[in-house]
Amino acid sequence: MNPENRSSPAPSATPLAAPAAQAAAAVTHYENFPVASLLCPPRLRPPIRAIYAFARTADDIADEGDAPPAQRLQDLAAFEADLQAVAQGHAPSERWETVFLPLRAMIEQHQLPVNLLADLLSAFAQDVEKTRDAEGYADRAELLDYCRRSANPVGRLLLHLYGVSDAQALQQSDAICTALQLANFWQDLSVDIPRGRHYLPRADCAAYGARQAELLARQTTPQNARLIQDSADWARALMVQGAPLVHRLPGRMGWELRLVVQGGLRILDKVDALQGGSLHTRPRLHAPDWIVMLARAVAM
Rank of each mutant, 00 (worst) to 15 (best):
E4T: 07
N5V: 12
S12V: 04
T14S: 11
P19E: 09
A26C: 08
E31N: 14
F33L: 09
L38M: 11
I51Q: 01
D60P: 10
I61A: 09
A62M: 13
E64W: 07
E64P: 07
A67N: 10
P68R: 11
Q71F: 09
L73N: 01
D75Q: 15
F79K: 08
E80S: 05
A81Y: 06
A81P: 03
A81G: 05
L83I: 00
A85H: 09
A85M: 06
T98P: 09
L101C: 07
P102G: 05
E108T: 07
L112R: 02
V114R: 15
L120Y: 01
L120V: 00
L120A: 02
S122R: 14
F124R: 01
L143D: 01
D145M: 11
R149T: 09
G163V: 12
V164E: 03
S165W: 08
Q172S: 02
A175S: 02
C177D: 02
C177Q: 01
Q181R: 12
A183G: 03
G196R: 03
G196C: 00
P201H: 02
P201W: 01
G209L: 07
G209W: 14
R218A: 00
Q219M: 07
T220K: 14
T221E: 00
Q223V: 07
Q223E: 11
N224Q: 07
R236P: 00
V240F: 10
G242R: 00
L249A: 08
P250M: 07
V261I: 09
R266N: 11
L268A: 03
D272S: 08
L274G: 11
Q275L: 15
Q275A: 15
G277S: 04
R282C: 09
W290S: 06
L294R: 13
